[in-house]
Nucleic acid binder design. Sequence first.
DNA 1: GATGAATGAGTATTCATTCAT
DNA 2: GATGAATGAATACTCATTCAT
Lengths: 196, 196, 196, 196
Amino acid sequence: MKKGERRKKELLEIAYRLFLQKGYEETSVDAIIEEAGIAKGTYYYYFETKEQMLEEVIGMMIEAETEAARQVLQSPLPVPQKIIGIIASLRPSREEAPIEGALMRPENVLMHRKILQKLSDAVTPLLARAVEEGIAQGIFACDNIAERVRMLLVVSNETFDQGRFTERDVAVFIDMAEKLFGAKPGTMDFIRELIR
Amino acid sequence: MKKGERRKKELLEIAYRLFLQKGYEETSVDAIIEEAGIAKGTYYYYFETKEQMLEEVIGMMIEAETEAARQVLQSPLPVPQKIIGIIASLRPSREEAPIEGALMRPENVLMHRKILQKLSDAVTPLLARAVEEGIAQGIFACDNIAERVRMLLVVSNETFDQGRFTERDVAVFIDMAEKLFGAKPGTMDFIRELIR
Amino acid sequence: MKKGERRKKELLEIAYRLFLQKGYEETSVDAIIEEAGIAKGTYYYYFETKEQMLEEVIGMMIEAETEAARQVLQSPLPVPQKIIGIIASLRPSREEAPIEGALMRPENVLMHRKILQKLSDAVTPLLARAVEEGIAQGIFACDNIAERVRMLLVVSNETFDQGRFTERDVAVFIDMAEKLFGAKPGTMDFIRELIR
Amino acid sequence: MKKGERRKKELLEIAYRLFLQKGYEETSVDAIIEEAGIAKGTYYYYFETKEQMLEEVIGMMIEAETEAARQVLQSPLPVPQKIIGIIASLRPSREEAPIEGALMRPENVLMHRKILQKLSDAVTPLLARAVEEGIAQGIFACDNIAERVRMLLVVSNETFDQGRFTERDVAVFIDMAEKLFGAKPGTMDFIRELIR
DNA sequence: GATGAATGAGTATTCATTCAT
DNA sequence: GATGAATGAATACTCATTCAT
């Protein structure tokens, strides 16, 4: 990696952190360059606009997430665990940036949305493959796989991202996940442990 | 209603329209007062801050929506139709403000989110009552009603608000709705017509 | 004149002075507001953009110049004196703002050009009327009056605005002016005194 | 011509084109180097500042124009045709850079002015020689030749550069040109064809 | 109730220039 | 000869909010 590229990645990481902490709109270019200890011009040497930087930040994140998902997919875990594992890994705020609130705070809605959409697009085919695997193994039985996967993602995001969910939410989620994929009751019960 | 109140409501309606058209952040106080034909001072006589106005705009909307939902609930429709009817009425952009895109556009994500959350809070108990009715009638069979209702709302919003959904999305949605509430297959098939 | 209007005119005058001193492009909004002792917002309360302000500055100037020209036209001076008097009054840098160089300096070329064009448009009909008067009196004899007037204006501007002209320039100018309007040699000789 | 010089001339030509297209101020160094496919540093290896480059661009142009004028002067054309020919050749936008508008556009006023001034300085002596020739041939009869030549140049520039002139402008121009040099009426009538 | 003049901190972006390699 | 990363002062413009009248 060349000098310029390293610098750029460094900037992306700083920006990512600031975006999460204060929100994209609320993070000024000034704040970013101060944090990075560079001049205004240097910033604009690497990024054409602030928005373009956001795209790159998101792109970087997506790449990392999907890579992680690919790993899970290739692991020897049982299919249901794979699926839930991948879904669980999609919450960057948990592992990477343990900043309370983070993506769910109103200032971040825009970024959150963008990330979710792209992440969903990238991860859906991976999850679909896992479901097919499950069907082949007789664990699942369903059609319209991609649509079901996407629906599960949506519910998962909305239910768990807020950080505010009850045991009953989990119970319903499990019930729904099983029924979505036509699994036997109890197949997904392990989620209960996972989430706690 | 006194003169001042009327004026205030008028302002709220103008603001609501502008917020939908251009997004909350992108709508300046200047734009609002110009549209309303009033002076800056007058605006701040009625609203402490622009954000407070947003809250009131949302409040006004919620009230209208829940009132509509209450109407549906008291109607003599079959329970499944009631439920779907209420959910369908939650999309303000369709009936109230026929502005294409509107709430789903990125500028509106913030407002969208706020509205959805509050709307969901307000409407969930109404929907829950409908589900209970359905259980009493033997059409549904499930526990954790509130959680299930909320999940359905989430999926509905995410799936249909974007305006971009396929027949397969609808099929999966129907399947899921039936299973969520423990209804017999086919109970919710009427949705297919409704949505077309 | 209301409070706001007075303020606006004051700003226009300050800006005019600064534009002449430093050139339009080189005069920042910051410089103007500092000189005027007002806040950024106040400036933009009165002017939508800096360029719009330039238009207004120019408009103000044109108005003053043409008014002066009208005065000369109504005076009891001999026609040739009227014409030359009006042309002479068109050089704002001389009487109004005795700033050396001023309009002719490269930074001001743009403004200069704009002013000259508009001034020329406004003053040409006045001068044309004077020429017609001269024709009626048998002093002049020519056709295409407007075109001749405009040509005289052009030459006058280019020759005398630079401030660097010789006696021979004056002699040629006089000769040309006489011939342009078909006057007898010597009719315009008084210019020699005027310019010195 | 050495490698370095060739490169420099190439840069000057690119810059000249860009300056005409977008104006000097509006053409950034970045734009120039991108077009030329060189690095920032290389640019500053050849030119100390952007303004100095402008001077060189203009110098290059002047040289080309005066060379053309010299050619006309040595040609066997009748004197009036020589003079008008030279004047006509001074409009670079016509022959050299067929960019509509070009020099007359407000962004270019500065460069235009600089060019005109220098061009005028360089060409005046050549034109003066032509006039002297005309006097020797008995076609012209006048004094203060240099001043008259310069005045003609000024009028020509202002009248024809804008592209917007009427037949009457041409008529007045011809009349004035003849009188300026003391030529017989009709001597310059050929201009009418030339311009059409 | 209503006005509108005034505020000023804040924003993203531009660009000629430098210099170590 | 040539590179390209780095600079930082400068710029026009926005906008929610205040307050004396």
